[in-house]
């Protein structure tokens, strides 16, 4: 039983990062239909902001975490204004632009920070054991922090006027514009929101595993797998999908097949897309 609970705990900690990534992906897709593959790199940028601001210390981690969220949100808005805004008429161009961005961001990061892996351990050596489950403090911070971020996000999307506007544009941008809603500003806002989540994910991800400049590329595939499993455009679906993918990975690793992890991940994604193209919970897009 304690082994099972241990696996649940491990699953939740990696699911947290996947969810922070995938919810950003799914929000941006829901409003713009842009498949932004550079979103994984936004997350890595967040990790590197954390390394710059807070190389050590638990208090400093909070500062680094906030800095990562702000910096990545600003970067995301700049990218939207400069590039993605021009591709809204043909979202596939936005996707292609993001492929170019991957190359720029990843080679830029490894040029300035070297290609080697980096880690931070602000909560080093502290492990709580509850009911036979080892809970390293780093991972507890990630899980609790992610839960807090998602509580705030749910409140924002469902209880505020700006959140209402985001949902309205996601359902029908044209009508929302005709009703006098600020559509372009909302889209920029959603890029900022996705950026904030990616910044948080980057900061948390750095606590879980070493970060390299090329991590974003591996991550974005998981991010899209998760978003697709949940249904593209569906925020709750993305949270669910993150748990599903993380659980699958935990199971595969438990059976000693760790070299096959990514293969099973992609297989799950392909099978699910074929059997249930709109994901477990319904996605936004009607064209299947």
């Amino acid at each position: 039983m304690s082994i099972f609970l241990q696996q649940v705990f491990n699953t939740l900690s990696s699911a947290s990062v996947y969810a922070l990534l995938a919810v950003g992906v799914t929000l941006v897709f829901g409003l713009t239909r842009i498949v932004n593959f550079a979103h994984g790199d936004l997350l890595t940028v967040g990790s590197y902001v954390l390394f710059l601001v807070a190389p050590a210390g638990a208090i400093w981690f909070l500062a680094g975490f906030a800095a990562a969220m702000v910096a990545v949100a600003v970067l995301a808005v700049v990218l939207e204004r400069l590039l993605f805004r021009r591709t809204l008429v043909a979202p596939i161009r936005g996707f292609l632009v993001s492929l170019g961005l991957i190359q720029i961001i990843e080679s830029g990061l490894s040029y300035f920070f070297t290609a080697g892996p980096r880690t931070v351990h602000p909560f080093i050596d502290r492990v709580w054991t509850v009911g036979g489950v080892d809970m390293p403090a780093d991972r507890v911070v990630v899980i609790v922090g992610t839960a807090a971020v998602f509580l705030a996000l749910t409140f924002y999307l469902e209880r505020t006027k700006a959140g209402l506007m985001i949902r309205a544009v996601a359902i029908d941008a044209e009508t929302a514009g005709l009703m006098g809603g600020p559509v372009t500003r909302t889209i920029a806002g959603v890029f900022a929101l996705g950026g904030m989540l990616a910044g948080a994910g980057g900061a948390f991800g750095a606590l879980l595993a070493p970060v390299t400049p090329f991590l974003g590329y591996a991550l974005i595939l998981k991010g899209f797998a998760v978003a697709l499993i949940g249904g593209l455009g569906n925020v709750r679906g993305a949270m669910l999908g993150a748990v599903v993918l993380a659980a699958l990975e935990t199971v595969v690793i438990t059976f000693g097949l760790s070299t096959w992890v990514s293969f099973f991940g992609f297989t799950l994604m392909i099978v699910l897309l074929i059997v249930r193209p709109r994901g477990l919970l319904r996605g936004v897009e009607a064209e299947i």
């Binding site: 996707f95 595939l221 992609f266 897309l273 897009e285 064209e287 299947i288």
Partner: peptide, 11 residues
């Protein structure tokens, strides 16, 4: 179709 096709081929 569309994005889903591209993403499947990515996978």
């Amino acid at each position: 179709r569309g994005h889903y096709f591209t993403i499947i081929t990515f996978a």
